[in-house]
Design a protein around this nucleic acid. Structure first.
Length: 596
RNA sequence: GGGCCUGUGGCUUAGCCUGGAUAUAGCGCCGGCCUUCUAAGCCGGAUGUCGGGGGUUCGAAUCCCCCCAGGUCCGCCA
């Protein structure tokens, strides 16, 4: 068999066509639905229940009849068990074919060739008014993992952060920075700019709650600011009640300052963005106006007191939602745009730049996202953004809230993770340099955090508990990292041990064969993540793989193996495991340390 | 009030879209394994009305209906 052919598909096709032929010889024309059994020894199965029903036979009778009519194959053998036709690939041959195929990919294992698809993943996009808290930390972790898995799957991906520099939050921040004396504020939690500047935002917010003149003031500023942005006059002085308050360009620079601090948290989490797109872009390049003009032509569009809205009444039944908000407001009475309107402009632009747009959003954005899609359809947009929603992380005592001071900052969690990891490393290693200790502690600490945020289905709520967030035992990043380090340790003792021709048929031990099979599941796990956005399946896959590697490690001595050919095959299996574990961890944005 | 999401051993969780063979793992608990390539490991054991009730089906954790609990949304806010 040619090394470039994927054995899974090859064997599956062989079984499928043999089954189809046998079925046809029984006069059954249905295309058989071949499944992967969840349990049991076999590799594939054909449940015969529905076929038997249509043929008027008992399932086990049909299975046996099909079995009797199947041509024998060198690739697999088949048995009939309680209504199932079970197919088991010829173990030695299959494992060898898998290993040869994987080995031929070299260091590129798990990377598909470019598929020509351009994907934009928008994630994180938190308002630039203060540091990240862990309530939203799932967003960058899920988003970045998706980006990595798409890249591994061969897509050309852009990770995009949509920065809200046009809204009330941004204006409150700037107003605070220019009108509140720093000496009136309490000390900041950290030196980082996001922690420093959030104090101005909080103070401005507090003032708005007590001072009724604040709200109209901010609204006037926002309106004047939008006008300045629309006419590309960033030097314009933005005033209210005739008094100058800020310059238009101050808003953007304030956001950028806070964003600097936020970017450094992202980088600590191993999250990299490719581009930051500011909301003001949509205003300054005129696309906001084009959106409004375009939607004006929609039959759903209505006007009231100068405000434009889409009348969604007709969609009520379709959505099975009697209380569907009937109006999707596009502009205020004064003609100025709203967040959702700018979002439409952004999406039109984004969709024109890629083949697939994916948004990672908190579940609170579901409704807004639905409205967005309706508006995009009204504008004639055929491709719509895909969404990945996640539920919030809350605290045992309730929802995180900055105002009630009930919040855990991401920066604190990151520090805590690294310092817990450091303690664990120190328990086991005394030979490390300070730099080595830091590097391993960081890999382990941050890895454990990221792992715990992607290991569960995104739409499940998470209650944040320190001991769980920093879990280093069992199904955790360090468990997987440890297997990787063990592999590296063996390879380090004989770096040339797998060079030359490898005889994969030397791998006959059950734990070797199990490991090879598990290694071959990397590709399918990556494509499930990339194509169906099920990124949470990578974590349990890696745990299972690491566990199989540990069994192999226990059962099969490598360096001490005396038969040179078997030793080489085992060395190569260790190298293959190292590559696959490394690739999987890379997909999760988790470092794969050489030693722990 | 209505829409959407979630509810699986003491705790956390996979499977649900696309119904099928003994319901997946981990933590914790109990009992073993370091003169042998890193014990952050391995092996064995106990633990389940798959939120509750109906229905469809030869067969339901999975599909449909009702109910309960938690989350979330229903602004000329973002």
């Amino acid at each position: 068999m040619d090394a470039s052919v994927d054995p899974v598909g090859y064997y599956t096709d062989a079984f499928t066509s043999t089954v189809s032929e046998a079925l046809r010889s029984l006069g059954i024309q249905d295309e058989p639905i071949i499944e992967r059994p969840r349990k049991g020894e076999s590799d594939l199965c054909l449940p015969c229940f529905n076929l038997a029903k249509r043929a008027g036979l008992r399932p086990d009778t049909l299975a046996t009849m099909v079995l009797e009519r199947m041509l024998p194959s060198e690739l697999f053998h088949v048995s009939s068990v309680s209504g199932y036709l079970n197919c088991t690939f010829e173990p030695g041959r299959y494992v060898k074919d898998l290993a040869v195929h994987m080995w031929s990919r070299g260091g590129d294992i798990g990377l598909s060739p470019p598929n020509g698809e351009r994907v934009t993943v928008e994630h994180t996009s938190a308002n630039p008014n203060g540091p990240f808290h862990v309530g939203r930390a799932r967003n960058p972790v899920l988003g970045d993992t998706l980006v990595r898995m798409l890249r591994a799957d061969g897509s050309e991906v852009e990770a995009q952060y949509w920065v809200n520099d046009m809204g009330k939050q941004a204006m409150l921040l700037v107003w605070g920075m220019h009108n509140i004396d720093a000496s009136e504020l309490g000390p900041a939690e950290r030196e980082k700019k996001d922690h420093q500047l959030v104090r101005f935002y909080q103070a401005a917010n507090a003032k708005m709650e007590t001072d009724p003149s604040m709200e109209p003031l901010i609204n006037v500023l926002l309106r004047n600011y939008e006008a300045a942005v629309a006419s590309l006059d960033m030097d314009r002085v933005i005033s209210a009640e005739g008094r100058p308050v800020i310059r238009a360009k101050d808003v953007r620079s304030a956001c950028e300052l806070v964003l600097d601090g936020m970017k450094s948290s992202l980088s600590d989490l191993n999250v990299a963005m490719d581009s930051f797109v500011y909301e003001s872009k949509v205003v300054s390049d005129g696309s906001l106006q084009r959106v409004i003009e375009g939607l004006r032509k929609s039959p759903l569009c209505r006007e009231e007191n100068g405000a434009l809205y889409l009348d969604l009444t007709g969609l009520v039944d379709e959505q099975k939602d009697e209380e569907f908000k009937k109006r999707f407001v596009l502009t205020r009475s004064d003609g100025s745009g709203l967040y959702t309107t700018r979002d439409i402009g952004y999406h039109l632009w984004k969709l024109s730049m890629c083949d697939r747009a994916i948004n990672v959003l908190g579940e609170d954005h579901k409704y807004q996202s639905l409205q967005l899609s309706i508006a995009l359809k009204e504008l004639g947009q055929e491709r719509l953004p895909e969404t990945m929603f996640y539920s919030f992380v809350s605290l045992p005592e309730g929802k995180m809230s900055t105002r009630r001071n009930r919040v855990v900052f991401l920066d604190d969690l990151l520090d805590e993770a690294v310092s817990n990891a450091r303690e664990e490393v120190l328990k086991r290693r005394s030979d490390l340099s300070p730099e080595g200790l830091e590097a391993i502690s960081r890999s382990v600490g941050i890895g454990a955090l990221r792992f715990n945020m992607v290991r569960v289905q995104p739409d499940k709520q998470i209650v944040f508990r320190w001991e769980e967030a920093l879990n280093f035992d069992g199904a955790s990043a360090p468990f997987v990292q440890y297997s990787h380090a063990r592999a590296c340790s063996i390879l380090g003792k004989d770096p040339s041990g797998f060079l030359g021709e490898v005889d994969w048929s030397m791998l006959v031990e059950p734990s070797e064969m199990k490991l090879v099979r598990k290694l071959s599941e990397l590709g399918p796990v990556i494509s499930l993540g990339a194509r169906e956005r099920k990124v949470h399946l990578m974590a349990p896959y890696l745990v299972e793989l690491a566990s199989f590697f540990n069994e192999f490690y226990r059962d099969c001595p490598v360096l001490k193996e005396e038969d040179p050919s078997r030793r080489k095959a085992r060395m190569a299996l260790v190298e293959l495991s190292r590559r696959v574990l490394g690739r999987g961890l890379w997909c999760l944005g988790i470092d794969a340390p050489m030693s722990m």
